[in-house]
Computed example of a mutant assay.
Amino acid sequence: MTVAFGVHGRRRAGIGENFWQYRRAVPGDVLTQVDWRRSARSDIQYIRQREWEAAQTVSIWCDDAQAMDYKGPRSEFTKAERARLLSLALAVLLVKAGERVSLLGTDAVQPRSGELQLNRIAMALAGDRVRPDYGAPPPAQYRTGGRAVFLSDFMGDKEQVFPALVEAAQHNVSGVFVQIVDDTEEDFPFDGRTIFRSVGGSVEFETQRARALRDAYRKRLAERRAQLRDVARNTGWQFSVHRTSQSPRAALLWLYMAIGGLR
Rank of each mutant, 00 (worst) to 15 (best):
A91P: 02
W52A: 15
L103V: 13
L90V: 02
I121E: 02
Q66N: 10
M68E: 05
R120F: 06
F77P: 00
L118E: 07
R100L: 14
S87A: 15
R100Y: 10
Q49A: 13
Q49K: 06
A108V: 08
D69I: 03
L103Q: 09
E81S: 05
I121K: 05
L118F: 05
V130R: 12
S113N: 10
L118R: 10
F77H: 12
G98Q: 08
G127V: 01
N119M: 07
G98M: 08
L85R: 14
C62W: 07
L88M: 14
Y46P: 01
I121M: 01
Q117D: 02
D128A: 09
L116A: 13
E53H: 06
T106N: 09
R129G: 11
V109W: 10
K96L: 13
D107H: 11
V92A: 07
I47K: 12
S59I: 04
A122V: 04
E99R: 03
E115S: 12
A108Q: 07
Y70A: 05
S59L: 09
G127W: 08
A83V: 10
A126K: 05
G105E: 14
R100N: 14
D128S: 12
R82D: 02
L93K: 14
Q117Y: 03
D63G: 06
S113L: 01
E99A: 08
S59C: 14
Y46A: 05
Q66A: 11
V92F: 10
A54R: 15
A65L: 06
A67P: 00
V101E: 03
W61G: 00
P111W: 07
L88A: 06
S87W: 05
N119C: 02
Q66R: 15
S75W: 00
T57A: 12
E51V: 15
A122T: 07
L93N: 10
V58G: 01
D128W: 05
D128R: 13
F77T: 07
N119T: 11
A67G: 02
G72E: 04
A97W: 09
P132E: 11
C62R: 06
P73I: 03
Q66F: 01
D69R: 11
D128E: 11
A126G: 13
A67K: 00
E81P: 08
